[in-house]
């Protein structure tokens, strides 16, 4: 397996080269002035536009500009983010933990809930449970995320004052700021840091802010996984080896969980992996509505302001995430299905 992983990681270089050329090329379709305009904040600076274009070499040929960017990245400099008013690298470590924390709770729930719902509704096919969970799936799938998020926010924050938006409450934030010696920020994730410091007040406050965004994310995303699981399970249950197992005297539990579900998990692993990879990018709607400034929020802001270093950095990040996810998926495949060998 070692050589397999090394080879896959070697291919990562080509993937990153491919996506960065593509995104860089698309960004080049904006005129040099348009790209330079991102650095201008006052009308007086507008007359500096030609000078800016010249200083940053924005009218150089594509390959020279791309080469310059690659050189900088190789030297460890990802550039300056205008949106964050910080270097891209530093800003990344500010926004990424916010998105990661959300997914830390949402992803296991999505996977567990999706598999459980899909399995049950396949077993009780055309039963009330099946109909109910399918209706639930369709609603979750077709409801606009921002609308659902707003309704949740209105009910649970507006009326009940239970789950506020944001990442952390003001009081807790103040507490952390005033006690730098007793509270160290290991990961940047509020709940995880709270647990690591043994400070339950902080952890619980972080959790309180996570309830609504996690709920939104789970309900919106679980539908896809549940449908893949359901159809996979229905297909497996109709296969001959299930009849063989029944003919041996297997009870329902053994047939469903030991025989059919394990086989049905093979396609589910792919979908679950892709979902997790995608959510690392952050859900824009969830992050904007719940005022959690994470990757999705940063990406959306950067895209509208044409913050090129951020966009390019993000494409490297997503390339990395997808290659690693596919690697993990392949390893899981081989673990579930003995017919697959890693070569």
């Amino acid at each position: 397996m070692g050589p397999f992983i090394l080879r896959r990681l070697f291919f990562l270089i080509f993937v990153l080269f491919g996506v960065s050329v593509l995104i860089f090329g698309i960004l080049m379709s904006f005129s040099p002035e348009r790209r330079a305009a991102a650095y201008i904040t006052t009308p007086q600076q507008a007359k500096d536009l030609p000078r800016l274009v010249r200083t940053y070499g924005l009218d150089d040929p594509f390959y020279i500009q791309y080469g310059r960017w690659v050189g900088e990245v190789a030297a460890g400099n990802l550039g300056w983010s205008l949106v964050a008013a910080q270097p891209v690298w530093t800003a990344f470590w500010m926004y990424f933990p916010v998105t990661l924390e959300l997914n830390l709770y949402a992803a296991p729930l999505i996977i567990w809930f999706g598999i459980w719902l899909g399995t049950r509704s396949a077993i009780h096919r055309d039963d009330w449970f099946d109909h109910l969970s399918r209706v639930f799936a369709i609603i979750g799938w077709s409801l606009p995320t921002f609308l659902f998020a707003l309704v949740l926010l209105m009910v649970f924050y507006g009326y009940f004052r239970m789950f506020p938006p944001g990442i952390i409450g003001d009081e807790t934030a103040l507490y952390i700021m005033n006690h730098p010696e007793s509270f160290s920020r290991y990961t940047g994730m509020v709940t995880v840091d709270g647990i690591l410091n043994g400070n339950w007040r902080v952890a619980l406050d972080g959790l309180r802010h996570l309830v609504l965004p996690v709920t939104t994310q789970v309900i919106v995303v679980v539908a896809l996984l549940m449908r893949v699981m359901r159809s996979g399970m229905i297909e497996e249950l109709s296969k001959d080896y299930v009849i063989t197992a029944r003919a041996k005297g297997a009870d329902d539990r053994t047939v469903h969980l030991r025989h059919a579900r394990k086989n049905a998990l093979i396609p589910v692993v792919t979908v679950a992996g892709q979902l997790v990879a995608f959510s690392m990018e952050g859900s824009i709607a969830v992050e904007v509505v719940f005022n959690r400034q994470g990757m999705g929020w940063w990406l959306a802001e950067s895209a509208t302001q044409l913050d090129m270093p951020v966009l390019m950095g993000m494409c490297l990040f997503m390339g990395l995430v997808f290659v690693i996810t596919n690697l993990v998926i392949d390893i899981l495949y081989a673990a579930i299905d003995p017919r697959i060998r890693l070569v």
Binding site: K239, D240, Y241, I243, T244, A245, R246, A247, K248, G249, A250, T254, H259, K262, N263, I336, D337, P338, R339
Partner: peptide
Amino acid sequence: IRGDRISMIFQEPNAALNPIMTVGEQVAES
């Protein structure tokens, strides 16, 4: 009764065996 008093051999051994369980596990189930 199934598998104990009455049991059955199927026509497609390829399809009748679970592809992701070892042969031993499948026989042992009986």
